[in-house]
């Protein structure tokens, strides 16, 4: 009866519903992302994909249901506390800090996401990473392929690189789960390839990924499992091929009648 997830699991969304006024945006959505698993979240426009991600990230409070991470409830926590507990995310409409460099993005994220929160010394320190943080920043820069532009202000980078900055900012500090909201949107073929490469390195580090995407080749390439959302409900889930062969999915999402 009790849907309490096991302690060592990653992310669990348990019968989450969201209503805006009278309209139901999500209805009883259940979803699990295990550590080291990449789950694709697909569905027609307006199915509630971003709404679900916002519920997990804390940008939105669900009307009912609950969200768990590693066996602990995230309900009622503001976004910054969830971030410190291991929820990281990227945004459909990028939310970077234009005047700061790539390195500063990663530094801020590495320090702010640290458990335990702020310290008084942060008022008077020199705003520089300590050796541990420096190493972590270097690794992350390498991972997302921005090492050669680490000291460029993000305002000088094109959209594709900005999406990678967001991804790097999300990955630093080893989150338990990364919520990626249409990360390939607006990227060209080559940038997509980089993105896919980065995403596929994550399971080995034990990081779970919830990936919202319309780029089906990308989904089939990187995802272990696919969940299809339609009008706020999960209508299918499982392996990519099987799900895409489902007549209901074909009707709702692919626009073809099986």
């Amino acid at each position: 009866m009790d849907p309490l997830p096991e302690r060592d699991r990653g992310l669990s969304v348990v019968s989450v519903s969201v209503r805006f006024g009278g309209i139901a945006a999500l209805e009883g959505v259940d979803l699990v992302v295990d550590p080291g698993e990449i789950v694709g979240l697909v569905g027609p426009n307006g199915a509630g994909k971003t709404t679900l991600i916002n519920c997990v990230g804390g940008q939105l409070v669900q009307s009912s249901g609950s969200v768990w991470l590693g066996g602990e409830s995230l309900d009622g926590l503001p976004p910054f506390r969830r971030a410190r507990r291991g929820v990281a995310r990227t945004f459909q409409r990028i939310a970077v800090f234009p005047e700061l460099t790539v390195r500063e993005h990663l530094f801020i994220a590495a320090r702010a996401r640290r458990r335990g929160g702020a310290r008084w010394s942060e008022l008077v320190d020199r705003g520089r990473p300590d050796p541990d943080e420096s190493a972590e920043i270097a690794t992350t820069l390498e991972l997302v392929g921005l090492a050669d532009r680490a000291d460029a202000a993000v305002s000088t980078l094109p959209l594709g690189a900005c999406r990678l900055v967001e991804l790097g900012r999300a990955l630093i500090g080893r989150p338990t789960v990364v919520l990626a909201d249409e990360p390939s949107s607006g990227l060209d073929a080559r940038e997509r390839a980089t993105l896919a490469t980065v995403l596929r390195t994550l399971p080995a580090q034990g990081i779970g990924v919830l990936l919202v995407e319309h780029d089906l080749p990308m989904v089939s390439l990187v995802c272990d499992r696919v969940v299809v959302l339609h009008v706020g409900r999960v209508i299918a889930q499982g392996a990519f091929q099987a799900v895409m062969a489902d007549p209901a999915v074909r009707r709702a999402y692919l626009g073809q009648v099986a």
Binding site: V42, G43, P44, N45, Q92, E182, S185, G186, H214, L216, A252, Y253, L254, G255, Q256
Partner: peptide, 14 residues
């Protein structure tokens, strides 16, 4: 500009 950006396959079809 960027006609099919962020659209589901069915919507692109439409």
């Amino acid at each position: 500009d960027e006609l099919s950006l962020g659209l589901s396959p069915a919507a692109v079809e439409d």
